[in-house]
Simulated assay, not measured.
Amino acid sequence: MIRLAKDADLTKIMDIVKNSVKVMNQKGNFQWDETYPLATNYQEDIDRKELYIYEESGQIKGVITISENEHSEYPSISWSSPVKALTIKRLAVNPEARGGDISGALFLFAEKVAKEKEIPYLKTDTFSKNSSAQRLFDKNGYLFVQAKEVKEKGDSLLYFEKFL
């Protein structure tokens, strides 16, 4: 089941994020670390009613932010269209629950939210070293748009889009 996250979910969400960061860093992907994402990021998502959790048997297995607010650099990206889009952010799946396509269910849910809001366009991004996210985007029909260097991370952000 996928539902809006509540304040009471935040501790469990941050446990999933912390475990995801550990796995990402072990694979040489330092997109997330102790400075991002923070509990305050997820709390703001909860407050805006943009944070959803995948829950199974009372356990939170995954989390996704589906937002009408873009990242600050998005206006400088060469998107295919200027139409309004929903942005997928801060997706995390408990490393112990991976392999069951929870992330795929969360992406399908984002499409459902977009259709309900009558927004036919989705955007997202990830770092070049996050090959897992890139495979996920490809599997779910997202197309690569552009890469942009992020000097302080020693990496590039890759931007993806999908029209519904």
Rank of each mutant, 00 (worst) to 15 (best):
4 L>S: 04
13 I>F: 05
17 V>D: 01
19 N>P: 02
19 N>L: 09
24 M>L: 09
24 M>G: 10
30 F>W: 01
31 Q>Y: 11
34 E>H: 10
35 T>Y: 08
35 T>Q: 09
38 L>G: 15
38 L>V: 15
38 L>A: 14
41 N>G: 14
42 Y>A: 08
42 Y>W: 08
43 Q>A: 11
43 Q>S: 12
45 D>K: 13
45 D>Q: 11
45 D>I: 15
46 I>L: 01
49 K>W: 03
49 K>V: 11
52 Y>V: 13
54 Y>A: 02
55 E>Q: 11
57 S>C: 08
61 K>C: 03
63 V>K: 00
64 I>P: 01
66 I>S: 04
68 E>S: 15
77 I>M: 02
78 S>R: 09
80 S>Q: 02
81 S>F: 10
85 A>Q: 08
86 L>T: 07
87 T>P: 05
88 I>K: 05
89 K>A: 10
90 R>L: 10
90 R>V: 11
93 V>N: 06
94 N>C: 02
94 N>W: 00
95 P>M: 05
100 G>Y: 00
102 I>M: 02
107 F>E: 01
110 A>G: 07
112 K>M: 04
118 E>Q: 10
120 P>C: 04
126 T>P: 10
132 S>W: 14
132 S>K: 15
134 Q>Y: 14
135 R>K: 15
135 R>I: 07
137 F>Q: 07
137 F>S: 10
140 N>W: 01
140 N>Q: 12
141 G>D: 07
142 Y>W: 02
143 L>N: 12
158 L>F: 15
